[in-house]
Design a protein around this nucleic acid. Sequence first.
DNA 1: CTAAACTTTCAAAAAAAATTGAAATTTAAT
DNA 2: ATTAAATTTCAATTTTTTTTGAAAGTTTAG
Lengths: 167, 167
Amino acid sequence: MEFEEAKHKFITTWGSLGSLWGINKAMAQIHALLLISPDPLSMEDIMEELHISRGNTSMNLRQLIDWGIVFKENKIGERKEYFTSEKDVQELARQIAKERSRRELQPTIKVLKEVSSIKTDGSKKSKELITQTKALHDLASNLDTFMNTIVNREQNWMTKTLLKLMK
Amino acid sequence: MEFEEAKHKFITTWGSLGSLWGINKAMAQIHALLLISPDPLSMEDIMEELHISRGNTSMNLRQLIDWGIVFKENKIGERKEYFTSEKDVQELARQIAKERSRRELQPTIKVLKEVSSIKTDGSKKSKELITQTKALHDLASNLDTFMNTIVNREQNWMTKTLLKLMK
DNA sequence: CTAAACTTTCAAAAAAAATTGAAATTTAAT
DNA sequence: ATTAAATTTCAATTTTTTTTGAAAGTTTAG
Protein backbone atom coordinates (compact mmCIF):
# COMPACT_ATOMS: atom_id res chain seq x y z
CA MET A 1 0.00 0.00 0.00
CA GLU A 2 1.39 3.40 -0.87
CA PHE A 3 0.76 6.79 0.66
CA GLU A 4 -2.37 7.97 -1.15
CA GLU A 5 -4.14 4.67 -0.68
CA ALA A 6 -3.22 4.49 2.99
CA LYS A 7 -4.38 8.03 3.56
CA HIS A 8 -7.68 7.36 1.85
CA LYS A 9 -8.19 4.19 3.83
CA PHE A 10 -7.52 5.94 7.10
CA ILE A 11 -9.88 8.81 6.34
CA THR A 12 -12.77 6.62 5.24
CA THR A 13 -12.34 4.19 8.13
CA TRP A 14 -12.31 7.01 10.63
CA GLY A 15 -15.34 8.47 8.89
CA SER A 16 -17.49 5.38 9.16
CA LEU A 17 -16.35 4.75 12.71
CA GLY A 18 -17.56 8.22 13.49
CA SER A 19 -21.06 7.57 12.24
CA LEU A 20 -21.17 4.49 14.43
CA TRP A 21 -20.58 6.78 17.38
CA GLY A 22 -23.12 9.44 16.61
CA ILE A 23 -20.63 11.74 14.95
CA ASN A 24 -21.37 12.49 11.35
CA LYS A 25 -19.19 11.29 8.54
CA ALA A 26 -17.97 14.67 7.35
CA MET A 27 -17.00 15.71 10.85
CA ALA A 28 -15.04 12.53 11.43
CA GLN A 29 -13.34 12.77 8.06
CA ILE A 30 -12.31 16.37 8.55
CA HIS A 31 -10.86 15.36 11.86
CA ALA A 32 -8.98 12.44 10.33
CA LEU A 33 -7.57 14.65 7.61
CA LEU A 34 -6.33 17.28 10.04
CA LEU A 35 -4.88 14.64 12.32
CA ILE A 36 -2.48 13.44 9.65
CA SER A 37 -1.69 16.80 8.05
CA PRO A 38 1.71 18.04 9.08
CA ASP A 39 0.62 21.61 8.33
CA PRO A 40 -2.56 23.58 9.04
CA LEU A 41 -5.21 23.43 6.31
CA SER A 42 -7.57 26.10 5.04
CA MET A 43 -11.25 25.56 4.36
CA GLU A 44 -10.49 25.39 0.66
CA ASP A 45 -7.94 22.64 1.25
CA ILE A 46 -10.43 20.57 3.21
CA MET A 47 -13.28 21.05 0.73
CA GLU A 48 -11.07 20.00 -2.12
CA GLU A 49 -9.52 17.03 -0.40
CA LEU A 50 -12.81 15.57 0.87
CA HIS A 51 -15.16 16.80 -1.88
CA ILE A 52 -17.59 18.45 0.46
CA SER A 53 -19.33 21.80 0.22
CA ARG A 54 -18.28 25.03 1.83
CA GLY A 55 -21.28 25.08 4.17
CA ASN A 56 -20.70 21.55 5.34
CA THR A 57 -17.04 22.23 6.00
CA SER A 58 -17.77 25.38 7.94
CA MET A 59 -20.41 23.79 10.16
CA ASN A 60 -18.42 20.69 10.96
CA LEU A 61 -15.26 22.61 11.69
CA ARG A 62 -17.23 24.62 14.18
CA GLN A 63 -18.42 21.46 15.89
CA LEU A 64 -14.91 20.08 16.06
CA ILE A 65 -13.79 23.31 17.66
CA ASP A 66 -16.67 23.02 20.16
CA TRP A 67 -15.44 19.55 21.03
CA GLY A 68 -12.05 21.10 21.74
CA ILE A 69 -10.13 18.89 19.34
CA VAL A 70 -9.57 21.29 16.44
CA PHE A 71 -8.08 24.77 16.59
CA LYS A 72 -8.08 27.85 14.41
CA GLU A 73 -4.77 29.26 13.39
CA ASN A 74 -3.84 32.45 11.63
CA LYS A 75 -0.87 32.85 9.36
CA ILE A 76 0.62 36.29 9.54
CA GLY A 77 -0.11 38.43 6.54
CA GLU A 78 -2.98 36.15 5.54
CA ARG A 79 -6.65 36.78 5.86
CA LYS A 80 -7.66 33.14 5.50
CA GLU A 81 -8.17 30.93 8.54
CA TYR A 82 -6.26 27.70 8.95
CA PHE A 83 -7.11 24.66 11.06
CA THR A 84 -5.13 22.05 12.95
CA SER A 85 -6.20 19.18 15.13
CA GLU A 86 -4.95 18.16 18.52
CA LYS A 87 -2.04 15.92 17.58
CA ASP A 88 -1.40 14.18 20.86
CA VAL A 89 -3.70 11.17 20.83
CA GLN A 90 -3.66 10.91 24.62
CA GLU A 91 -4.87 14.45 24.91
CA LEU A 92 -7.41 13.75 22.17
CA ALA A 93 -8.77 10.79 24.12
CA ARG A 94 -9.04 12.85 27.29
CA GLN A 95 -10.87 15.61 25.53
CA ILE A 96 -13.34 13.20 23.97
CA ALA A 97 -13.89 11.44 27.30
CA LYS A 98 -14.52 14.78 28.95
CA GLU A 99 -17.04 15.92 26.36
CA ARG A 100 -18.91 12.64 26.25
CA SER A 101 -19.22 12.67 30.01
CA ARG A 102 -20.60 16.18 29.93
CA ARG A 103 -22.97 15.67 27.02
CA GLU A 104 -24.24 12.16 27.54
CA LEU A 105 -23.30 10.50 30.77
CA GLN A 106 -24.17 13.31 33.14
CA PRO A 107 -27.66 14.00 31.74
CA THR A 108 -28.40 10.28 31.79
CA ILE A 109 -27.26 9.96 35.39
CA LYS A 110 -29.58 12.78 36.30
CA VAL A 111 -32.59 11.03 34.78
CA LEU A 112 -31.65 7.72 36.38
CA LYS A 113 -31.47 9.44 39.73
CA GLU A 114 -34.92 10.96 39.31
CA VAL A 115 -36.51 7.76 38.07
CA SER A 116 -34.97 5.57 40.74
CA SER A 117 -36.10 7.97 43.44
CA ILE A 118 -39.85 7.58 42.97
CA LYS A 119 -41.52 5.99 45.94
CA THR A 120 -42.78 2.49 45.31
CA ASP A 121 -46.49 1.75 45.35
CA GLY A 122 -45.57 -1.72 46.52
CA SER A 123 -46.22 -3.39 43.16
CA LYS A 124 -43.72 -5.81 41.63
CA LYS A 125 -43.46 -3.54 38.59
CA SER A 126 -42.50 -0.44 40.48
CA LYS A 127 -40.02 -2.35 42.64
CA GLU A 128 -38.33 -3.67 39.52
CA LEU A 129 -38.15 -0.22 37.94
CA ILE A 130 -36.51 1.17 41.05
CA THR A 131 -34.05 -1.70 41.45
CA GLN A 132 -32.92 -1.64 37.85
CA THR A 133 -32.60 2.10 37.41
CA LYS A 134 -30.72 2.32 40.71
CA ALA A 135 -28.27 -0.32 39.50
CA LEU A 136 -27.79 1.55 36.23
CA HIS A 137 -27.34 4.76 38.14
CA ASP A 138 -24.55 3.26 40.20
CA LEU A 139 -22.82 1.82 37.15
CA ALA A 140 -23.06 5.05 35.19
CA SER A 141 -21.83 7.10 38.14
CA ASN A 142 -18.81 4.88 38.58
CA LEU A 143 -18.00 5.14 34.93
CA ASP A 144 -18.37 8.88 34.97
CA THR A 145 -16.11 9.30 37.97
CA PHE A 146 -13.61 7.00 36.34
CA MET A 147 -13.63 9.03 33.13
CA ASN A 148 -13.21 12.27 34.99
CA THR A 149 -10.35 10.80 36.94
CA ILE A 150 -8.58 9.93 33.74
CA VAL A 151 -9.19 13.36 32.34
CA ASN A 152 -7.66 15.13 35.29
CA ARG A 153 -4.55 13.05 35.70
CA GLU A 154 -1.21 13.91 34.28
CA GLN A 155 -0.14 12.90 30.82
CA ASN A 156 0.43 9.21 30.28
CA TRP A 157 -1.29 8.14 33.45
CA MET A 158 -3.95 6.48 31.39
CA THR A 159 -1.69 4.21 29.40
CA LYS A 160 0.31 3.25 32.43
CA THR A 161 -2.82 2.41 34.37
CA LEU A 162 -4.40 0.44 31.60
CA LEU A 163 -1.25 -1.56 31.16
CA LYS A 164 -1.03 -2.24 34.87
CA LEU A 165 -4.63 -3.47 35.00
CA MET A 166 -4.15 -5.86 32.15
CA LYS A 167 -1.34 -7.84 33.71
CA MET B 1 -43.30 11.47 39.84
CA GLU B 2 -45.39 8.32 39.85
CA PHE B 3 -44.80 4.97 38.26
CA GLU B 4 -46.14 5.45 34.73
CA GLU B 5 -44.37 8.74 34.27
CA ALA B 6 -41.09 7.37 35.59
CA LYS B 7 -41.33 4.35 33.36
CA HIS B 8 -42.02 6.51 30.34
CA LYS B 9 -39.14 8.80 31.18
CA PHE B 10 -36.75 5.91 31.56
CA ILE B 11 -37.77 4.29 28.28
CA THR B 12 -37.53 7.48 26.24
CA THR B 13 -34.22 8.51 27.80
CA TRP B 14 -32.72 5.11 27.11
CA GLY B 15 -34.13 5.31 23.61
CA SER B 16 -32.48 8.59 22.71
CA LEU B 17 -29.24 7.55 24.35
CA GLY B 18 -29.29 4.57 22.06
CA SER B 19 -29.47 6.64 18.93
CA LEU B 20 -26.53 8.66 20.19
CA TRP B 21 -24.58 5.41 20.23
CA GLY B 22 -25.49 4.06 16.84
CA ILE B 23 -28.26 1.83 18.18
CA ASN B 24 -31.67 2.62 16.83
CA LYS B 25 -34.40 4.05 18.99
CA ALA B 26 -36.76 1.11 18.81
CA MET B 27 -34.02 -1.32 19.73
CA ALA B 28 -32.97 0.72 22.74
CA GLN B 29 -36.57 1.20 23.88
CA ILE B 30 -37.38 -2.49 23.63
CA HIS B 31 -34.33 -3.17 25.70
CA ALA B 32 -35.32 -0.58 28.30
CA LEU B 33 -38.80 -2.02 28.53
CA LEU B 34 -37.57 -5.57 29.05
CA LEU B 35 -35.00 -4.44 31.57
CA ILE B 36 -37.66 -3.14 33.93
CA SER B 37 -40.31 -5.79 33.31
CA PRO B 38 -40.45 -8.26 36.16
CA ASP B 39 -41.95 -10.86 33.80
CA PRO B 40 -41.18 -11.93 30.24
CA LEU B 41 -43.08 -10.07 27.53
CA SER B 42 -44.53 -11.30 24.26
CA MET B 43 -44.19 -9.52 20.94
CA GLU B 44 -47.76 -8.29 21.31
CA ASP B 45 -46.98 -6.81 24.70
CA ILE B 46 -43.99 -4.93 23.33
CA MET B 47 -45.82 -3.64 20.23
CA GLU B 48 -48.64 -2.37 22.34
CA GLU B 49 -46.53 -0.78 25.01
CA LEU B 50 -44.20 1.04 22.60
CA HIS B 51 -46.62 1.60 19.68
CA ILE B 52 -44.38 0.02 17.10
CA SER B 53 -45.17 -2.40 14.30
CA ARG B 54 -44.82 -6.14 14.34
CA GLY B 55 -42.01 -6.10 11.78
CA ASN B 56 -40.04 -3.53 13.67
CA THR B 57 -40.42 -5.44 16.92
CA SER B 58 -39.35 -8.68 15.34
CA MET B 59 -36.25 -7.26 13.67
CA ASN B 60 -35.04 -5.38 16.70
CA LEU B 61 -35.62 -8.27 19.07
CA ARG B 62 -33.45 -10.36 16.82
CA GLN B 63 -30.68 -7.78 16.99
CA LEU B 64 -30.88 -7.63 20.76
CA ILE B 65 -30.59 -11.40 20.87
CA ASP B 66 -27.54 -11.16 18.56
CA TRP B 67 -26.00 -8.75 21.03
CA GLY B 68 -26.52 -11.36 23.71
CA ILE B 69 -28.55 -9.12 26.01
CA VAL B 70 -32.07 -10.42 25.36
CA PHE B 71 -33.27 -14.00 25.55
CA LYS B 72 -36.19 -15.99 24.25
CA GLU B 73 -38.29 -17.86 26.74
CA ASN B 74 -41.06 -20.34 26.27
CA LYS B 75 -43.93 -20.75 28.66
CA ILE B 76 -45.10 -24.32 28.87
CA GLY B 77 -48.31 -25.00 27.08
CA GLU B 78 -47.96 -21.75 25.08
CA ARG B 79 -47.01 -21.37 21.48
CA LYS B 80 -46.10 -17.71 21.77
CA GLU B 81 -42.52 -16.64 22.41
CA TYR B 82 -41.64 -14.48 25.37
CA PHE B 83 -38.61 -12.27 25.87
CA THR B 84 -36.52 -11.19 28.83
CA SER B 85 -33.42 -9.08 29.09
CA GLU B 86 -30.24 -9.70 30.99
CA LYS B 87 -31.12 -8.24 34.37
CA ASP B 88 -27.70 -8.01 35.93
CA VAL B 89 -26.33 -4.64 34.84
CA GLN B 90 -22.72 -5.73 35.38
CA GLU B 91 -23.24 -8.64 33.06
CA LEU B 92 -25.01 -6.33 30.64
CA ALA B 93 -22.05 -3.96 30.61
CA ARG B 94 -19.64 -6.81 29.99
CA GLN B 95 -21.68 -8.15 27.15
CA ILE B 96 -21.88 -4.74 25.51
CA ALA B 97 -18.15 -4.15 25.98
CA LYS B 98 -17.45 -7.52 24.42
CA GLU B 99 -19.63 -6.90 21.38
CA ARG B 100 -18.37 -3.38 20.79
CA SER B 101 -14.83 -4.61 20.89
CA ARG B 102 -15.60 -7.31 18.38
CA ARG B 103 -17.65 -5.16 16.03
CA GLU B 104 -15.86 -1.85 16.14
CA LEU B 105 -12.57 -1.77 17.92
CA GLN B 106 -11.00 -4.84 16.40
CA PRO B 107 -11.73 -3.97 12.76
CA THR B 108 -10.43 -0.45 13.38
CA ILE B 109 -7.25 -1.73 14.94
CA LYS B 110 -6.71 -3.90 11.91
CA VAL B 111 -6.94 -0.93 9.55
CA LEU B 112 -4.69 1.18 11.75
CA LYS B 113 -2.13 -1.59 11.70
CA GLU B 114 -2.19 -1.78 7.91
CA VAL B 115 -2.05 1.93 7.40
CA SER B 116 0.73 2.53 9.89
CA SER B 117 2.79 -0.23 8.30
CA ILE B 118 3.31 1.36 4.89
CA LYS B 119 6.87 2.24 4.21
CA THR B 120 7.61 5.93 4.17
CA ASP B 121 8.66 7.66 0.98
CA GLY B 122 10.56 10.09 3.21
CA SER B 123 8.07 12.92 2.80
CA LYS B 124 6.81 14.88 5.78
CA LYS B 125 3.27 13.85 4.89
CA SER B 126 3.90 10.15 4.92
CA LYS B 127 5.91 10.37 8.13
CA GLU B 128 3.04 12.15 9.82
CA LEU B 129 0.52 9.58 8.61
CA ILE B 130 2.64 6.78 10.01
CA THR B 131 3.31 8.49 13.34
CA GLN B 132 -0.31 9.35 13.97
CA THR B 133 -1.88 6.09 12.91
CA LYS B 134 0.70 4.20 14.96
CA ALA B 135 -0.18 6.26 18.03
CA LEU B 136 -3.88 5.60 17.47
CA HIS B 137 -3.14 1.94 16.97
CA ASP B 138 -1.41 1.75 20.33
CA LEU B 139 -4.19 3.60 22.08
CA ALA B 140 -6.92 1.48 20.53
CA SER B 141 -5.04 -1.73 21.29
CA ASN B 142 -4.65 -0.79 24.93
CA LEU B 143 -8.30 0.02 25.17
CA ASP B 144 -9.27 -3.22 23.54
CA THR B 145 -7.11 -5.30 25.84
CA PHE B 146 -8.52 -3.40 28.78
CA MET B 147 -12.09 -4.10 27.69
CA ASN B 148 -11.38 -7.76 27.16
CA THR B 149 -9.76 -7.97 30.55
CA ILE B 150 -12.90 -6.59 32.14
CA VAL B 151 -15.04 -8.98 30.20
CA ASN B 152 -13.17 -12.04 31.31
CA ARG B 153 -12.85 -11.25 34.98
CA GLU B 154 -15.19 -12.50 37.61
CA GLN B 155 -18.36 -10.73 38.58
CA ASN B 156 -17.92 -7.42 40.36
CA TRP B 157 -14.26 -7.06 39.50
CA MET B 158 -15.12 -4.09 37.34
CA THR B 159 -16.78 -2.02 40.03
CA LYS B 160 -14.11 -2.79 42.55
CA THR B 161 -11.38 -1.83 40.11
CA LEU B 162 -13.04 1.37 39.01
CA LEU B 163 -13.52 2.38 42.62
CA LYS B 164 -9.92 1.61 43.45
CA LEU B 165 -8.66 3.69 40.53
CA MET B 166 -10.67 6.68 41.51
CA LYS B 167 -9.25 7.09 45.00
C1' DC C 1 -16.29 54.36 2.97
C1' DT C 2 -16.06 50.65 -0.45
C1' DA C 3 -14.68 46.60 -2.29
C1' DA C 4 -12.82 42.24 -2.13
C1' DA C 5 -11.85 38.08 0.52
C1' DC C 6 -13.53 35.10 3.31
C1' DT C 7 -17.05 32.80 6.58
C1' DT C 8 -21.55 31.74 8.26
C1' DT C 9 -26.33 30.78 7.90
C1' DC C 10 -30.28 28.36 6.53
C1' DA C 11 -34.04 26.84 3.37
C1' DA C 12 -34.29 23.41 0.09
C1' DA C 13 -32.65 19.00 -1.84
C1' DA C 14 -30.58 14.66 -1.37
C1' DA C 15 -29.26 10.73 1.06
C1' DA C 16 -29.59 7.53 4.67
C1' DA C 17 -32.00 5.15 8.18
C1' DA C 18 -36.02 3.50 10.41
C1' DT C 19 -40.65 1.87 10.16
C1' DT C 20 -44.68 -0.18 8.35
C1' DG C 21 -47.72 -3.82 6.95
C1' DA C 22 -49.03 -7.43 4.28
C1' DA C 23 -47.42 -11.62 2.08
C1' DA C 24 -44.53 -15.55 2.81
C1' DT C 25 -42.77 -18.71 5.89
C1' DT C 26 -42.41 -21.43 9.92
C1' DT C 27 -44.21 -24.05 13.74
C1' DA C 28 -47.03 -27.04 16.19
C1' DA C 29 -51.50 -28.96 17.43
C1' DT C 30 -55.19 -31.87 15.96
C1' DA D 1 -52.03 -33.42 6.01
C1' DT D 2 -54.52 -29.46 7.30
C1' DT D 3 -55.16 -25.54 9.70
C1' DA D 4 -54.37 -21.84 12.63
C1' DA D 5 -51.20 -19.26 15.38
C1' DA D 6 -47.12 -16.93 15.39
C1' DT D 7 -42.95 -15.01 13.35
C1' DT D 8 -40.04 -13.29 9.67
C1' DT D 9 -39.08 -10.93 5.50
C1' DC D 10 -38.78 -7.11 2.52
C1' DA D 11 -40.51 -3.56 -0.89
C1' DA D 12 -42.62 0.65 -0.22
C1' DT D 13 -43.18 4.59 2.66
C1' DT D 14 -42.09 7.80 6.19
C1' DT D 15 -38.98 10.12 9.09
C1' DT D 16 -34.61 11.83 10.25
C1' DT D 17 -30.18 13.37 9.18
C1' DT D 18 -26.86 15.27 6.25
C1' DT D 19 -25.42 18.08 2.55
C1' DT D 20 -25.65 21.74 -0.68
C1' DG D 21 -25.22 26.33 -2.45
C1' DA D 22 -26.42 30.86 -2.74
C1' DA D 23 -27.54 34.90 -0.02
C1' DA D 24 -26.31 37.39 4.03
C1' DG D 25 -22.88 38.66 7.07
C1' DT D 26 -18.08 39.86 8.59
C1' DT D 27 -13.57 41.43 8.39
C1' DT D 28 -9.66 43.76 6.65
C1' DA D 29 -7.08 46.52 3.21
C1' DG D 30 -6.71 50.45 0.66
